[in-house]
Design a binder for these strands. Structure first.
Lengths: 116, 116
DNA sequence: CGTATAGTTGGATTGTTGTCAAACAATTAG
DNA sequence: CTAATTGTTTGACAACAATCCAACTATACG
């Protein structure tokens, strides 16, 4: 099992995280990871509407921003949110984003009472 | 007193807000607005290290994303954070960002002494 | 009126980003 | 070994973004 290159928790930068989260495709990936936990790239990228190389590029952006952790197991690349690191560094940020972007039954917040 | 064109509260998009906040210059402006409340563009852009036209571009980006409200009074353009709109649409997001980017002690909990 | 102040706009430049397609690499299944 | 699966990498390209400078508008001050 190999770990891909990641920034250390202390090196995660706010602007990088915000920028990583500011793309609809990446936001969708993050939303899925929040709901389903660790996922392979192919699962995370399913029905995303972009080419697999484009998805791969987004995965790298998320990883390099410190939003997700990616480990290689066999031929799968398993991604998961760096919740603890993000919460420690930017308290409440990830939860707020997930609450704001979630069209799925949310693990992080109460169900939406009013549709936007 | 004129109001510049803004998106309606309901039309503020998460990705647009995150993108607007993902630039260091704009984040600095937002941080100042959070601490000092309504400010003119020249005050907000003071010591920012960019040309005034560049700052102006950033103001427009913030305004068009729905992060700030800009009204024209005389020859001043007064900017303020759209706190209520942002909190209603993305609860906790702005506070989390301000907490994360703030070099000052608790600027978020501090009530404005000079309300508009 | 003329001049200073506050800010926007347009052009130019330089760099970044999102996208696809094709090729590649690594692991697993037959 | 061969073929399928699972992604990454590279190249190309158009769109966007950040920056500066110069010119411009609009208001205020003498």
């Amino acid at each position: 099992m190999r770990l891909l290159p990641h920034p250390a928790a202390a090196d995660i930068e706010l602007t990088e995280v915000l920028r990583a989260l500011s793309d609809p495709v990446r936001l969708a990936v993050v939303g899925r990871l929040a709901v389903r936990g660790e996922m392979s790239c192919s699962d995370a990228g399913d029905e995303l509407g972009v080419h697999k190389s484009t998805a791969s590029h987004h995965y790298r952006t998320l990883r390099e921003a410190g939003v997700v952790l990616t480990k290689q197991e066999g031929r799968l690349h398993l991604m998961s949110l760096r919740r603890a690191d993000l919460d420690a560094r930017f308290p409440g940020l990830l939860d707020a984003v997930l609450t704001a972007c979630s069209p799925w039954p949310s693990p992080v917040a109460e169900p939406c009472d009013q549709a936007p």
